[in-house]
């Protein structure tokens, strides 16, 4: 049975992802940990796209500023900022499939060593095969120039979520470029998964013990750059 290691909080995971984003880019943030990334990029030159049909999505609305006609893709009331634009959801996905998103940050259930992503079908919910909340995940995984997958490193039972082959239904094949978990930052390369950063107090062996595929240790492996 794998040990449970202590790693980054969800907030610090979001901060680490924010450090990965470059100024002058268009970014889509998925539901869950990815949503928290917006807290760490305030004031930066990054345009957030919301797949419901909004570019340059502003911060969450305060109670008195809630407008029922203005929500993000997670159904949270948000705000406009200078330079916002509205489009239909069809046009929104046109820009997603059309390769205009520089980065998509997506939540994940499993990622394989080839970068396959499984993020939408949790078999424990008991729905028939092929039925679940796909939402925008498949289009974003296929269309974004760079896909960052975020998740807690293991299941609550301690099972690896970075696996040789995904057991859960796929979102897209070979689409993930970078995996950020509470324990490690791992790059997906043609040679395999490269372990680049780890949580303070952990060793590469610790991370390997809760990761199914063999990790390649980066020569400059270091603690999380926060």
């Amino acid at each position: 049975m794998a040990t449970r290691f202590k790693g980054l909080s969800r907030e610090l995971m979001a901060m680490r992802v924010a450090n990965e984003l470059k100024d002058g880019t268009y970014v889509n943030l998925g539901i869950g940990i990815p949503t928290l990334v917006s807290d760490w990029i305030e004031g930066r030159d990054i345009v957030l796209q919301s797949e419901i049909g909004m570019l340059n999505t502003g911060p969450l609305a305060s109670q008195e500023n809630v407008d029922q006609d203005l929500i993000n893709a997670s159904c949270q009331p948000v705000t406009e900022r200078p330079g916002s634009a509205y489009i239909s959801t069809a046009d929104s996905f046109g820009m997603i499939r059309g390769g205009r998103m520089d980065v998509a940050v997506l939540g994940a259930l499993q990622v394989s060593e080839k970068g396959d992503l499984a993020s939408w079908a949790n078999p424990e919910r008991g729905f028939p095969e092929g039925v679940g909340n796909i939402g925008g995940s498949m289009d974003l995984a296929v269309g974004a120039k760079r896909v960052i997958a975020t998740m807690i490193h293991t299941t609550t039972k301690g099972e690896a979520k970075i696996v040789k082959n995904c057991g859960y239904a796929l979102t897209a094949e070979k689409c993930v470029d970078l995996i950020l978990t509470d324990l490690a930052l791992i790059e997906v390369t043609p040679e395999g998964l490269v372990l680049k950063e780890i949580a303070a107090g952990l060793t590469a062996e610790d991370v390997q013990s809760v990761t199914e595929p063999k990790l390649i240790i980066a020569p400059d492996l270091c603690e999380f750059r926060l």
């Binding site: 239909s88 929104s92 269309g143």
Partner: peptide
């Protein structure tokens, strides 16, 4: 997929029978 859902409607409204999308391949 949400993009496919939208595009099936857009195609329907534009008199197109079908379209090819990269989304969903391998799933």
């Amino acid at each position: 997929p949400m993009g496919t859902f939208c595009e099936k409607l857009r195609a329907g409204g534009a008199g197109l029978a079908a379209f090819y999308t990269p989304t969903g391949v391998g799933t």
